[in-house]
Design a protein around this nucleic acid. Structure first.
Lengths: 354, 354
DNA sequence: ACATTTTTGAGGTACGTTCCTCAGTTTTTG
DNA sequence: CAAAAACTGAGGAACGTACCTCAAAAATGT
């Protein structure tokens, strides 16, 4: 009827509570034979440890740190909000999040922050950062100190990070490529690709996936070299403006990163809005607006809420040395068009976690 | 430093623990003035109730019932699996799920099951069922007894259900319509629509959204009357076969419900695989396979894992009479193509809930 | 059979909250 | 202004688990 407890196990296995406790928490001093008896009782009764009670008794609290680059990127801002929200929900289960921003121009600052984190203060770190040698070393040292770390949004494959929370950029680029190809059905011409910087792993991988698909499946479309904007609206106007003037047969635009507002302004000035198929990444207020207005045909996105919750769940599991549920942590590559645009998220209220 | 507890609030507000407890749990017998003082202290200290401890003390366990139609629908089967998984994760937070299937041919059986549920045994019900008068009455009676109910997958708008967990079918149909229209760019011709039954609310709404979009935005495409298969592969073969023979200018197929395998078989026989743009709903082993093989161009899906978790979260919140986090419960209309197909979910292991 | 080591049992306190009782205090009402 | 009603305080038991101590029992080596 009611859920079995540790006492039930003790009775069922014919041992004392203390012994059950030793087995459950892998404490030493139990003969294998006795341990077996206990484990069998556990299975027989279908015992599931009450994590709530366990954490309460442990009076453990999970102090996590999230590190995001500073700056005015809307995606990062949205992600920061999602992390705060997720953390305030998880607060009911004794998790607290220290959300910090670091100056993106100097990786030594971030490195210093990472070096300052000690296992007694921090149960886990979620980090969104490019993989530079400095960062790689800092992450390795952090993990050497026993602090779990998940890479957030952008992977850090050669650092031994515990987990990557984010989508596969290559597959995301392929998805963008297929949509571009299919939306341009019957057309032939050139596709412009606009990126913030091609030094970022994500941009490179997206571009690679995109090219692959267009090359093999859509031979009528010709992908042009990447225009880099370095996050500057002016640079985008200039570069894209010149390129459009010089290339009459552009049929599609692929925005690897930011710059949606500047692009829309440019196209509006020239009366070209709606002339091309435009595909971008990440759902932000700007891209949302562009989708609604019809300037943008599709967005390939990862859900910031899922990113945030997944990161915290994984960190907690790592802190508890528990296996993670791979299925739940697998993030989807979302395709967003005007018709399936989720309604604007509004104010968040406090609520139950779990 | 450490998290504030009820005792801290009592001290801060200058009242006793008992009073704080009365305020926190909305028990009667506290003057508004005193309650205010307590609430202010709560805000001042940034107190967050430790749900783990609270549930422990309440020694409450949430016994939920999920009712799904029986039969071999792959989507329902996937959803049932997702519910089991979600429940086994939530078991650590004292939730148990009683997952039942009812015979879809006789709504009186389901009605009887619903009538048999009593508030002392059941903390909430998740129901996937068509809205018939019999069901409507049974649901109203259930809610009259004080048992929260969420509609799962398919809404029951006129029953006073507490919440609908699922996607907007009309918007899903519109999404399908846009994809059909854009994937058929440059073509003109007719689009076949195949449904299990047009008596189901979902089918009607999807169809309506689909038609809307094609009519206004893609005038070159002509939507044909719906072919109904009633879940029968034979009927599908016959009806679709005849229709294809009689209609040479078909460019697209829209499958509102099931029948992907039968359709693929038929098209293969006639050497028509890949000839049309095919769009369907829900990600199941069949549609997954069809996407990979290239017979199916896009699937409009709702994530069964999210459905399941959302349903359980909402039911728990209702049982606790807590507000739900609308943002988190909003389900996305997913667009799945071959390139963003999530990898096959494999075995699930037990793990911590969050 | 003895000493030694290892394993087991019994019992306690703690975690933060809920929920109960009962006595004492304040406020409202007639 | 007294009686009634409403409110408040103090304390304790309980939820299921973790973790500690100390003593008793069992297994081990000689």
């Amino acid at each position: 009827m009611t859920r079995p407890t540790v006492n039930d196990i003790a009775r069922e296995a014919g041992v004392s509570l203390a012994t059950v406790d030793r087995v459950l928490n892998a404490r030493p001093g139990v003969r294998p034979k006795t341990a077996n008896a206990v484990n069998e009782a556990i299975i027989r009764l279908g015992y599931v440890r009450d994590m709530a009670a366990a954490n309460l008794a442990r009076s453990r609290s999970y102090r996590m740190v999230a590190l995001l680059p500073d700056g005015d990127s809307q995606f990062v801002q949205t992600l920061a909000d999602a992390l705060s929200d997720a953390a305030s929900l998880a607060a009911a289960t004794r998790l607290e999040l220290d959300l910090r921003r670091y100056p993106p121009e100097d990786m030594h600052v971030l490195s210093a922050i990472l070096s300052g984190l000690q296992p007694e203060d921090v149960a886990g770190v979620a980090l969104m950062a490019p993989e530079t040698p400095v960062i790689r070393d800092a992450v390795r040292a952090l993990r050497g100190r026993g602090i779990p770390l998940v890479a957030l949004g952008s992977d850090l494959p050669n650092t031994g990070r515990d987990h990557f929370v984010g989508i596969d950029s290559h597959a995301a680029g392929r998805t963008a490529g297929v949509l571009m190809g299919r939306f341009c059905r019957g057309l032939s011409g050139r596709v412009m690709v606009i990126a913030d910087s091609m030094l970022l792993r994500d941009s490179i991988e997206r571009r690679r996936g995109f090219d692959e698909v267009l090359l093999t499946d859509f031979p009528g479309l010709d992908v042009m070299p990447t225009l880099e904007t370095h996050g500057s609206a002016d640079l985008l106007r200039r570069a894209v403006g010149e390129c459009l003037a010089a290339t009459p047969d552009v049929v599609g635009l692929y925005l690897l990163g930011s710059g949606h507002r500047a692009l829309a302004a440019l196209l509006r000035e020239r009366g070209l809005l709606g002339r091309f198929v435009v595909i971008g990444h990440e759902l932000t207020p700007h891209t949302r607006q562009a989708l609604l207005a019809g300037h943008l045909d599709a967005v390939i996105a990862q859900n910031p809420g899922h990113l945030a919750r997944s990161a915290l769940r994984v960190l907690r599991a790592k802190a508890d040395r528990i296996a993670i549920d791979e299925g739940q942590e697998q993030l989807r590559i979302e395709v967003v068009i005007r018709e399936n645009l989720p309604s604007e998220p509004h104010e968040n209220h406090q609520s139950d976690a779990a």
